[in-house]
Amino acid sequence: MSEYIAGILIWVGSGFCFVAALGIVRLPDTLTRMHAATKAGTLGAGLLIIGGAVFFQELLVTLRALTIIALVVLTAPVAAHLIGRASYESGVPLSDRTWIDELEAYENEKRASEQYCQPGEW
């Protein structure tokens, strides 16, 4: 029975990884691509790792699997946040389907301020 569960988890996990890769290729701009990369990638890898834990069925392996999942879940959004900021600040064009951008006003305000180009700021 556990083989079936592990097999299904592995299938679904690798499927989500594939969707993440496909999303990176197909979606229109950097920020939407990151949606696919962080969410589908994290979920896919997580399911695959749980599948491994179910397959081995040992306490030590389960703990290791949980450690890997915790690391991925902790680091993925941090990296995503930084890339998102970098891509927005570098002025990568958003896709033409984007219909509202409330960050633009704040960003302009920040750039207009005196401190923005002070040497200490970077």
Binding site: R26, L27, D29, H35, I100
Partner: peptide, 26 residues
């Protein structure tokens, strides 16, 4: 939420027609 969101992103990625309407809000 993780499961639901992924199904939505998955749908947008695998169907040829894009259904996304992105935007940035504060």
């Amino acid at each position: 939420e993780l499961a639901v969101s992924n199904l939505k992103v998955l749908w947008d990625v695998i169907t040829p027609k894009h259904i996304n309407r992105p935007g940035i809000i504060g």
